[in-house]
Structures are given as C-alpha cells and as structure tokens.
Simulated assay, not measured.
Amino acid sequence: MNVVFLLLGANLGSPLKQLELAQKMLVENVGKLHSESGVYESEAWGVEDQPKFLNKVIHLSTPFDPHKTLAICQNVEDTLGRVRKEKWGSRIIDIDILYYNSEVLDEPFLKIPHPYLHLRKFTLVPLVEIAPHGIHPVLKYTNEELLLRCSDPLNVNRI
C-alpha cells in the first residue's frame, strides 16, 4: 500500500459540506483513511480578492499509483462541480496531492511533493497537526520545521 497526504480546500458554496463530501468520496475511491486534521480557515493565497478558504489535510493508504490517485482526485473535484478558470481562484473544491510515499515527481501535470507545500501556512498547519515529523523528500526538513521556517503572513485558524 502507498501513503498519500491530500489537502482539501474550498471557498464557494458550502465549503464545510464540500470538504466533507470530498473526503467521503476520496475514502470510497482512493483508500483507507488513517488520520485527518481539523478544519482551518485562512485568507486566500495567491489571488487575495476572494472569500476565505476552509482547508484540511487527510492521510490515506491507497493501492493506486500517483497518476491514478490524481485522476481520482480530479474526478471527485469534477463530480462536486469544480470549474477550472483561474489559477488560485475561488473554487467549490480543490484537492492537492501533498506527498505520495516519499516519492519525487516533476511532470507537467503532476508534481510531488506539492511545489508550494513549504510556502503556505494553510497547507502546513493542518499537515503538522497529523504528521509533524514527516520529512519533505526534497528539502529534508520535517513538516514542523517547514512550518517554523514558513514566511507566509496569512492567518490560519482552526474552526
């Protein structure tokens, strides 16, 4: 089995409901849930003129390879009504692969670990809640160390 950490985020519609539905669908289609963070609210990152986001991180085991896992995540997004218009824009649901085992992939449509993981508190705070000692396979810091080094000024608050 493979280990995958996914970031779920939403800021349109009913974000909390969207996170719950996405998690349920991911557990049904990707694999067994091992842990989940609380839900955190943060200001938007990248494109700031939009509603606040709710985010959480889930840790699953899966029999699928990273490409199949990505395809399932995108299918869940599509099923829940995600429309891809603007990078970092508002969305019904967003699912990012943060880590997949300790693999490193740098492909046009799949980058693992997530290339912005270490730059965004809204990712690191929930990740540290469930995997503080996990090690970034490229940067070689723990998730906790990455959070301490993160210069992202946005507030992230557990709801």
Score class of each variant (00 low, 15 high):
Met1Gln: 10
Val4Ala: 03
Val4Cys: 02
Phe5Trp: 05
Leu7Ile: 04
Leu8Ala: 05
Gly9Ser: 00
Asn11Pro: 03
Asn11His: 06
Leu12Trp: 01
Leu12Glu: 04
Gly13Lys: 02
Gly13Tyr: 09
Pro15Lys: 09
Leu16Lys: 08
Leu19Val: 05
Glu20Lys: 00
Leu21Val: 01
Gln23Ile: 02
Met25Ala: 15
Met25Val: 03
Glu28Gly: 11
Val30Asp: 10
Leu33Arg: 00
Leu33Phe: 05
His34Lys: 11
Ser35Asp: 15
Glu36Val: 12
Gly38Asn: 07
Val39Ser: 10
Tyr40His: 08
Glu43Gly: 09
Trp45Gln: 08
Gly46Lys: 05
Gly46Thr: 00
Gly46Leu: 08
Glu48Gly: 08
Asp49Val: 04
Gln50Trp: 02
Pro51Leu: 07
Lys52Ala: 08
Lys52Ser: 07
Lys56Ile: 13
Val57Asp: 10
Val57Gly: 13
Leu60Ala: 05
Pro63Ala: 15
Phe64Gly: 08
Phe64Thr: 08
Phe64Asp: 11
Asp65Asn: 12
Asp65Lys: 02
Pro66Leu: 10
Pro66Gly: 11
His67Gly: 15
His67Ala: 14
Lys68Leu: 10
Thr69Gly: 11
Cys73Pro: 00
Gln74Ser: 11
Val76Pro: 00
Glu77Arg: 09
Asp78Thr: 10
Asp78Asn: 10
Thr79Trp: 07
Leu80Phe: 13
Gly81Asp: 12
Arg84Val: 08
Arg84Tyr: 06
Glu86Gln: 11
Lys87Asn: 13
Trp88Glu: 06
Ile92Arg: 13
Ile93Asn: 07
Ile95Arg: 04
Ile95Gly: 03
Leu98Asp: 05
Tyr99Pro: 01
Tyr99Cys: 05
Asn101Ala: 07
Asn101Phe: 00
Ser102Ile: 11
Ser102Trp: 03
Ser102Gln: 13
Glu103Ser: 04
Val104Lys: 15
Glu107Cys: 11
Glu107Thr: 14
Glu107Pro: 00
Phe109Ser: 06
Phe109Tyr: 09
Phe109Ile: 03
Ile112Ser: 07
Ile112Gly: 03
Tyr116Cys: 10
Leu117Met: 15
His118Met: 13
Arg120Asn: 07
Phe122Gln: 01
Thr123Arg: 00
Pro126Ile: 04
Pro126Ala: 14
Ala131Tyr: 12
Ala131Glu: 09
Ala131Asp: 12
Pro132Tyr: 01
Pro132Met: 01
His133Gln: 14
Gly134Cys: 06
Gly134Lys: 07
Gly134Met: 05
Gly134Gln: 06
Pro137Met: 07
Val138Lys: 02
Lys140Gly: 00
Tyr141Glu: 12
Thr142Pro: 15
Thr142His: 15
Thr142Arg: 13
Asn143Gln: 15
Glu144Val: 07
Glu145Trp: 06
Leu146Val: 03
Leu146Asp: 01
Leu147Met: 13
Leu147Cys: 14
Leu148Met: 12
Leu148Arg: 15
Ser151Trp: 03
Ser151Thr: 08
Leu154Glu: 03
Leu154Pro: 11
Asn155Arg: 04
Val156Pro: 02
Val156Ala: 12
Arg158Ile: 12
Ile159Pro: 10
